[in-house]
Amino acid sequence: MKTLSFLLIAAALLAGCASSKSGDVYSRDQARREQTIRMGIVESVRPVTMEGTKSAVGPMAGAAVGGIAGSTLGHGQGSAVTAVIGAVAGGLAGAAIEEGVTRRQALEITVKLDNGQFLAIVQEGDAAEFRPGDRVRLLSTGGETRVTR
């Protein structure tokens, strides 16, 4: 029961680390930066899945929880062995939980620019937000591009 509680707490903490990559959300670092604007027409919109983050937070939290849980089993050297096994299993579980919790549904938006060039941008968003034939703006800065109306 304690292990399950720890895993749920770890999952909740990881969920708080998730960030949005929609066209309407800017990070603090992106504020007040010059952006290049290009205009175009949406050619197609396709739902895709954006993989979750794979940082050290999930495995570390899982290893800590698993190690603590494992150390409560056995006595003496057996306790140390189960702590190591618990830490390894917890680290793997923590990594999987982090990736799953931060995975997002997104859109692949293909745009034909006014100059005839085609670009595809992946960002979070609602499929009803963009439709083929819509006139859109592509805002680019620092190697990142977002599609907006």
Score class of each variant (00 low, 15 high):
47 P>I: 02
127 A>Y: 03
95 A>C: 02
23 G>Y: 05
115 N>P: 04
142 G>N: 02
138 L>H: 12
40 G>H: 10
23 G>I: 00
110 T>D: 02
41 I>M: 15
85 I>D: 02
88 V>Q: 10
78 G>W: 14
62 G>P: 01
16 G>D: 03
121 I>W: 08
70 G>R: 03
9 I>K: 09
103 R>D: 11
29 D>H: 13
51 E>Q: 14
67 G>R: 06
69 A>V: 00
82 T>D: 07
26 Y>E: 04
116 G>W: 12
70 G>H: 03
42 V>T: 12
9 I>R: 07
93 A>K: 01
48 V>P: 11
121 I>C: 02
58 G>A: 12
7 L>S: 03
81 V>C: 04
124 E>T: 10
136 V>G: 00
112 K>C: 10
22 S>I: 02
15 A>M: 07
37 I>A: 11
48 V>W: 06
49 T>M: 13
38 R>L: 02
102 T>L: 02
57 V>R: 13
129 E>C: 10
7 L>T: 00
81 V>Y: 07
39 M>T: 15
78 G>H: 07
148 T>G: 12
131 R>N: 13
21 K>W: 15
147 V>A: 11
146 R>I: 00
137 R>E: 15
121 I>N: 13
31 A>M: 15
114 D>Y: 02
118 F>V: 13
42 V>S: 02
25 V>H: 14
113 L>S: 11
76 G>Q: 10
12 A>E: 12
15 A>D: 11
149 R>I: 09
11 A>D: 04
116 G>R: 07
101 V>D: 10
2 K>T: 04
96 A>D: 04
45 V>F: 05
6 F>G: 13
37 I>P: 03
23 G>S: 01
50 M>H: 03
76 G>D: 10
115 N>T: 15
107 L>C: 01
56 A>P: 09
63 A>G: 00
5 S>Y: 08
29 D>P: 00
80 A>Q: 11
83 A>C: 03
36 T>D: 14
132 P>R: 09
30 Q>E: 14
58 G>D: 00
116 G>Y: 09
78 G>Y: 05
96 A>F: 01
110 T>N: 12
114 D>W: 09
126 D>W: 13
58 G>K: 10
112 K>N: 15
7 L>R: 10
96 A>W: 09
104 R>M: 14
67 G>S: 05
113 L>Q: 14
8 L>R: 04
81 V>F: 06
117 Q>C: 01
1 M>T: 13
120 A>D: 10
87 A>W: 07
27 S>P: 09
15 A>T: 14
65 V>Q: 10
92 L>K: 03
14 L>M: 02
27 S>Q: 09
47 P>N: 07
59 P>H: 02
